[in-house]
Amino acid sequence: MALHSAIKGKLIAVIGDEDTCVGFLLGGVGEINKNRQANFMVVDKNTAVSEVEETFKRFLRRDDLDIILINQNIADMIRHVIDCHTMPIPAVLEIPSKDHPYDASKDSILRRAKGMFNPEDVH
């Protein structure tokens, strides 16, 4: 199974607004596998936070994903779940969208890295 996956290559998943999903799927990342599972989720104003959370957790459980792209404003909705994910793979990338510019102070990985320079930890 592992060998098969290595040959096939791993996927990029997308959780984002309509334009982000349409754009990246136009780029060719979209997949619907034999189990009828898609590797993308379009989030609009009617989508419940629990639904986003559930999809994100399902993506984390899948072993054929290496990168999960998520709009930063959607990542803010499920920040506690993203902060709990400390493994390097799948890499969770918080990406900006056309409506919400990138804010480095909210990025989980940067906040974790900033912890290195915490005055209490500095030798």
């Binding site: 096939k8 290559g9 791993k10 996927l11 990029i12 999903c21 349409v22 799927l25 780029g27 060719g28 990342v29 979209g30 997949e31 619907i32 596998n33 034999k34 009828r36 599972q37 898609a38 590797n39 993308f40 379009v42 290496d66 990168i67």
Partner: peptide, 16 residues
């Protein structure tokens, strides 16, 4: 966009 309910599988053109 394709939906999981449709018949055909969608194969990704970009992988890592």
């Amino acid at each position: 966009l394709p939906t999981p309910g449709e018949g055909a599988d969608v194969t990704p053109l970009v992988t890592v």
